[in-house]
Write a protein that binds this DNA or RNA. Structure first.
Lengths: 255, 255
DNA sequence: AACGGCCCAATGGTCCAACCAATTGACTTG
DNA sequence: CAAGTCAATTGGTTGGACCATTGGGCCGTT
C-alpha cells in the first residue's frame, strides 16, 4: 500500500483540518481522543447519543480504525464514553467530573437569584427546624444561644455580626437535626448569601427594622426547638423566612 | 489463518494460565490491563523499571500485540505507566492514588451517612420533581431523555453508566424546576453519592433487580414531568426514593 | 392484531503481517 | 579519543480479515 504516503498525509489531515490544540506529537490516538473529547464537551456529540461507528470515524478523520479504537479506549477509561459491542459508543458525560476543588467556582454558579435562594431555604429549613426540635442536644442549644448572642450585638443589618450570627444560627439548626446532609446543604446555600451579589441586594432591600424582627423571629424558633416542639419550630421557621422574603418583595416594589 | 482456532485458544490461555480475577468477558484488553496492573501492584514489576516489550508481552500472554497495546494505553490513561517510543513502557506507580484528588476529603465531609443522604434527597427532590413538572421546557425533557438513555445501557448497578445516568437524571430534574439553588443542592449531594464510601455501600446493598426497578421508576417520574402533573411527579419521586431507601434497609437486615 | 421466533445487517473485538519512526548503543572513522 | 554512522530495539500506525454480540426487521403462528 501507499503507506509511505498515506500515513504522514493522514496525520497532517488531522492536525490541520481539525486544528488539534497544540503539542501532543506522535501518539495519534491521543490527538483523536482529545479531539473527540472536545467535541463532546462542546455538545457536538450530545450526552446520551451514539458516536459514529468506528469505521466511519476512521474514514472521516483519515486514520486507521485501530487508532480510533485506541482513542475510544482512552476515552472509555477516563469515563467519557461507554463502549458496547454490537451496539455502539455512547457519550456518558460532557464535563468529566473534571474538577477538583476549585470547581465550585463555575460560571454557572453565581446565577442563583436571591428569591430562588430564599425559596430553597424555605423548603429545606422548615424541615431542619423540625428535625432540630426532635433531636437537639444540649450542645446544640448552646451553639444556638451563642449565635443569637453574636447577632444581638449587631447594630445594623450590614454589620458582620448580623450576617455571621444569622449564618451560624441557621447552620446550627441544621446541625442539631442530626443529618449531616442537611448541614451541608444549608452551609452551601449560605455561602451564596455571603457573596457580594446577595449581600448588596439584601442591604438594599432590608430596612433597619429587620434587626429587631430577626431577633424576635430567631428567638421564637429557638424556643420551639428548645421545647422540642417540632410543629412550632416548623411554623416559626416558616414565618421567619416568609418575613425575609416579604422584606425583599416590599423592597423591590418600593424601588 | 487459523483464526477460528487461534482466538478462543488465546483467550483460554489468558484465562487459565494467569487466572484473571473474574468476569470481564470480552474486552480482552481489559483483562490484560487488569492483569498487568495487578502485577505492578504486587511488585512483580517494580516501580521505575521497564515492562517487557509489547511483542514479548503479546507472546507470553498468547494474545496479539494489538490487544497488548490497547491494554497499555488503558494503563497509561489511568496513570500507571508511561509509554515512550523507542524506549519502552515504564512503571510509574503501584497504588494508583485510588481516587483522583482526595481534595474534598476534608475530615468533616465524609461523615454523611448514606441513609441521611437519602433522607435529605427525599425531602428536597420531591419538591424539585414538582417544580420540574410545572416549569420544564422542551430542552429539559430532552436532557432527561438522554440521561435515561445513558442509564438504560448500564448492565449492573456498579456500572459507570448507572451512576452517571442516575446523577444526570436527578440533576436535570432539579434544573428543570427553574431554581438554581435546588440544582446546586442536588449536584452537591450527588458528589457524595459518587464517593467511594457511598458507592461501595450502594453496590453492596442493592441487588441486580434495582436495575430494572430504577428504570421503571425513573420512567414514571419522567412521564409525570412531561405531562406537567406536579402531584404525580411528587408521588413518583417519593416512591422512587423510598424504594431505594427500602433496598438499603433490606440489604442491612440481610447482612 | 398481537405475539414469538428467526435471520441478518450493523457494530465492536481480536488478530495478523507488514512498515514507519524514535531511541539507543555499538561500531567505524578521522 | 571524539565524532559520525549504522543497526538493533521498541513503540506507532496501517489495512484487511474474521468472530461475537446486539438489535431490529421479517414472517409465521396463534
Amino acid at each position: 500500500m501507499a503507506n509511505s504516503e498515506t500515513r504522514p498525509a493522514a496525520r497532517d489531515k488531522v492536525t490541520r483540518q481539525l486544528r488539534l490544540p497544540q503539542v501532543e506529537p506522535g501518539r495519534l490516538y491521543r490527538q483523536i481522543a482529545s479531539l473527540i473529547g472536545e467535541r463532546i464537551d462542546r455538545g457536538q456529540f450530545p450526552v446520551g447519543s451514539l458516536l459514529p461507528p468506528e469505521r466511519d470515524l476512521a474514514q472521516q478523520l483519515g486514520v486507521s480504525r485501530t487508532s480510533v479504537r485506541e482513542a475510544l479506549i482512552a476515552l472509555e477509561v477516563s469515563g467519557k464514553v461507554s463502549i458496547r459491542v454490537g451496539h455502539g459508543v455512547q457519550i456518558l458525560q460532557a464535563t468529566p467530573r473534571s474538577d477538583r476543588v476549585g470547581a465550585r467556582a463555575d460560571p454557572g454558579e453565581a446565577d442563583i437569584g436571591p428569591i430562588q435562594l430564599m425559596q430553597a431555604r424555605r423548603h429545606v429549613e422548615v424541615k431542619t427546624a423540625e428535625l432540630a426540635a426532635r433531636n437537639r442536644s444540649k450542645l446544640d442549644l448552646e451553639r444556638l444561644r451563642q449565635a443569637l448572642a453574636v447577632q444581638a450585638r449587631a447594630r445594623s443589618v450590614s454589620a458582620p455580626e448580623y450576617r455571621n450570627g444569622d449564618r451560624d444560627f441557621h447552620v446550627a439548626i441544621a446541625r442539631a437535626g442530626g443529618n449531616a446532609a442537611f448541614t451541608l446543604i444549608i452551609a452551601d446555600l449560605w455561602d451564596y448569601v455571603c457573596k457580594p451579589t446577595f449581600s448588596k441586594f439584601e442591604e438594599l432591600l432590608m430596612g433597619p427594622e429587620r434587626l429587631q424582627m430577626t431577633a424576635a423571629e430567631h428567638r421564637r424558633i429557638f424556643d420551639a426547638i428548645a421545647a422540642g416542639d417540632g410543629v412550632a419550630a416548623r411554623k416559626a421557621m416558616r414565618n421567619h423566612l416568609d418575613a425575609v422574603l416579604h422584606a425583599f418583595s416590599r423592597g423591590l416594589d418600593e424601588n
